[in-house]
Amino acid sequence: MSLAKRIIPCLDVDNGRVVKGVQFVDIRDAGNPVDVARRYDEEGADEITFLDITASSDNRETIVHVVEEVANEVFIPLTVGGGIRTVDDVRRMLNAGADKVGINTAAVFNPEFVREASDKVGSQCIVVAIDAKKVSADGEPLRWEIFTHGGRKPTGIDAIEWAMKMVEYGAGEILLTSMDRDGTKVGFDLPLTRAVSEATTVPVIASGGVGNLEHLAKGVTEGLADAVLAASIFHFAEYTIQEAKQYMADCGIEMRL
């Protein structure tokens, strides 16, 4: 198998600025998305994901300009998510230079939107983001459900079935986040990742819980993920992307070095 597994740093962008503290010693302005993206590109990131967390819809346009500016200078795939609700939103991001657009809550409230968007722009541009939380009690067979609103609102929808349905509706990729693990730094929810990867025919990106390089490697070797997404371990310069890729390659994982 010569296709490389991917490492994807994720940047939270609020009103056009990178938040959650990015720390590079030699970067003049760690809040500037262009500087940060350029730096990750130089370190060998396989893709970059921007998550727009801008609360006010008045300021939604700023992310479009961010994408334009980054795409002018950084020549690797870019994904943009957050607040994508209409086919027009999708088109605007693609025209700004994004290669893929992440759809999350809107898919839960209106699954047909995923079908419509993938019909219009092609499945390869549509990433469905799934926020899942374990709902089975200890000792019961494992079961996860979809949550919305940052993991606060349960929907009663089974995560595995939902992933399969989204692929049927035209998702070209699944971004799978464990809400139990997000921010904990104890590693991916590997059984969840593996279950979704085995149940679907499109690439799966594992997300939520990375605290060290072993976690990234296990996402692939045990979770069977096609790509791994992480934020804080790269932003706080605990590890460079190069180190992460080398570590994974040393574990026998096919990587682009």
């Binding site: 490389a4 991917r6 396989d46 096609d226």
Partner: peptide, 29 residues
């Protein structure tokens, strides 16, 4: 998985000016 998505190796099957300064088995997206 389909689509085939990500960085994969390209093996050159003929010498060509467009492969100049690109190593055999370099990865492309």
């Amino acid at each position: 998985k389909v689509p085939h998505m990500g960085w994969n190796k390209v093996s050159h099957k003929q010498a060509h000016p467009l492969w100049n300064d690109i190593k055999e088995n370099s990865r492309f997206y």
